[in-house]
Design a protein around this nucleic acid. Structure first.
Lengths: 350, 350
DNA sequence: CTGTTAGCGCCTTCAG
DNA sequence: CTGAAGGCGCTAACAG
């Protein structure tokens, strides 16, 4: 039914091994023979059987990418960058490597499931993006899985997540969320803000905690009291920003600034303020985090911390492909850059 | 080295066949035996070998998704939706199906390459998103490839792309780009606009052409002359919208509205207008297409045509999984909805 | 440079 | 309900 390597061999009058060799190009073959084989491949419209090839070679051309949700540009950009680096010849039979994108929704159970599935596929590499859940059993389970993946031959790279205990050979490119959060709030305090609302992400996530800690660090350094009533937790979405902002306004009408866990949440905050008839930044300053593409088009443009998502993803991809040296100690910190734009200004006189 | 099904069988004191049967759960096995096997799997930390399994079963758990660029929410949303539907038991050995996301950059060569790679992987299904290139040889090559994929057992679904000749069994969910473009410009004409700039996408793409044709249809229906100097082509990105808007303003300062090929381009247009000190919509109205999540947060909020990207992707995913009946004739048209918001208004008196 | 020979690890008839 | 046996299509030593 479907044409196999043996058919090609027969037609080209060579042995199957030779066909395999010209296909994989990793072994000397006479030019004339190669031509003949290639022609046969073409004439028969032959397509290599990937599973068979992977089975025999004990490795595959698949690279796993774990993301919370690929529809979120934060993850989409990293995934796109990883892809751009795994592309190009290098896979089996001159083929290219392909990206298996797994939406985990941030759930550790799904992360675990997908890691197992990727191990099952004998993925050449796995890039795990996004923050980690802070929960000992889960962390241990995932760490163990990552270690076993590594032992089974997959290169493991964490992108935007702290190093995993239990998985010593996994390279980690960690975002400096704490430092970014610190600089952002420093900036607001420098402008004169003292009553600053903070809309944090979901609890039990490293990203959430680190960004929040940076904020608190800045408050403490400036001797500003950290009123717990001004910090609200919620998902990383627009709605959360909208609702939390209304709640903050209710709790503390005197507030002059709102810091959001990320840009998406910040947009929600902006919408809520507009709906309340408050002007940004004259009545209330707003800041985000990530600097996603749309942030510059907010009106006023969003002050935020730019994370080099594409660059980090690309680097993760190169390391996963063994095309870039691992950072010393297997850990590198990726810093964010404060982008001061129109959405923050001096507080209103009051 | 790595534990195999035979190891599990030995430990559970059954034959490999039995282990395979409990893993795949598609054959009666005594409860007690199953327990024993499952325990052995657990104790040995056994992970099925995907390639071996796929080879023997002649099918895989992989579902291909072709997108222009996964970093673009237009594609990210569809990809996310497809994923949500292929998730869940149903794959081999109770595992789940995984999505292989391929960034083609809209290049037909890369589309072809990836389709071959997916055929090589014996993908269970392939969902192709985005418009098609209008170029006979390419279209034929891709159509042929899709047909062969189908013949090889992969279910093929086009999502947001017109039906492919040469691939009769590929289901197509086509966006009504023409109708959407028509309604959008009808809306502007209804407001009183007569000098309308149009920033189209790249040439030779069905999406570009259909949206533009809808616009021209509306002009013709209203008896408005279609000045070719008011139509510019460019990529589907913000920069293109920015530059094209400046150029349009240069060519026709009297223009009162700009229609962009999509929301991203529209944001660029808004930025250019702001930079020129023009107010939206008082000086110039702006409209986009797609209704991506950020469009509602533009200021003023963007008038656009909402495409149900998530719904379409989900439906494509269900059809790909055989969980939803194919539309009659294998073709369904997905309509967009005009979303009138603040970025369009009556033209300035002049 | 090329052919021969064993598997890779699993699934799936076919017996029992 | 369970075991035995063959083969899925390809690759990777070995010989030559």
């Amino acid at each position: 039914m479907t044409v196999t390597l043996a058919d090609v061999a027969a037609r080209a009058q060579v042995s199957p091994a030779t066909v395999s060799r010209v296909l994989n190009g990793n072994y000397p073959v006479a030019a004339a023979t190669r031509e003949r084989v290639l022609r046969a491949v073409d004439e028969l419209d032959y397509v290599l059987n990937g599973p068979a090839s992977s089975l025999a070679a004990a490795t595959s051309d698949l690279v796993g990418i774990l993301v919370n949700d690929i529809a979120d540009p934060f993850f989409g950009i990293m995934a796109s960058a990883v892809q751009s680096e795994i592309t190009g010849p290098g896979g089996r039979a001159g083929g290219e490597r392909m990206a298996v994108v797994c939406n985990t929704g941030g759930s550790p159970e799904r992360e675990l499931t997908y890691l197992t599935l990727l191990q099952r596929q004998r993925a050449a590499a796995v890039v795990v993006t996004g923050g980690a859940i802070e929960n000992a059993p889960h962390a241990a389970a995932i760490g163990g899985k990552l270690r076993r993946l590594g032992e089974a031959g997959s290169r493991v790279v964490l992108c935007g997540r702290p190093p995993a205990d239990d998985a010593p050979d996994a390279v980690a490119l960690t975002f400096d969320n704490r430092g970014g959060g610190r600089r952002l709030t420093d900036h607001l305090i420098g402008l004169g803000h003292r009553r600053i609302g903070y809309i944090a992400g979901p609890t039990e996530r490293t990203t959430t905690r680190h960004r929040l800690e940076g904020h608190q660090e800045a408050l403490a350094a400036a001797g500003v009291a950290d009123d717990p009533r001004l910090t609200l937790h919620g998902p990383y979405d627009r709605r959360s920003g909208y609702d939390a902002t209304l709640e903050l306004l209710r709790r503390a009408p005197e507030l002059t600034a709102v810091v959001a866990a990320n840009d998406t949440v910040a947009l929600g905050a902006c919408a809520a303020l507009r709906d309340r008839g408050l002007s940004i930044p004259d009545d209330v300053s707003v800041a985000g985090f990530d600097d996603l593409p749309f942030s510059i088009d907010a009106v006023p443009a969003l002050t935020t911390v730019r994370l080099p998502l594409y660059e980090a993803g690309a680097r993760a991809g190169r390391i996963a492909m063994g095309r870039e040296e691992e950072p010393p100690g297997g850990i590198a910190t990726v810093h964010g850059e404060l982008m001061v734009r129109g959405s923050t200004g001096v507080p209103r006189p009051y």
